[in-house]
Amino acid sequence: MEIIVDQDKCTAGGLCVMAAPEVFDQRDEDGIVVLLDANPPAGHHEAVREAVMICPAAAIRLKEDR
């Protein structure tokens, strides 16, 4: 799994951090998403997929092997 975030689209809701705190964080000053791990281990994949769906700015994209 590869994660791509769009910081210009991000609206700083922090919902991704609530869903997958090991993978996403927020900048202190403006709350914009910070990607902690662009290729997280399998144990985090379900939480990351949840974060993609609940992101209110559609700012997270996944590339998954099929």
């Binding site: 700083a12 809701g13 922090g14 951090v17 609530m18 927020q26 202190d28 403006d30 709350g31």
Partner: peptide, 10 residues
């Protein structure tokens, strides 16, 4: 103007 703080306060 405090996105991190409000997430924690939730």
């Amino acid at each position: 103007n405090h996105p991190r703080g409000v997430r924690t306060a939730r």
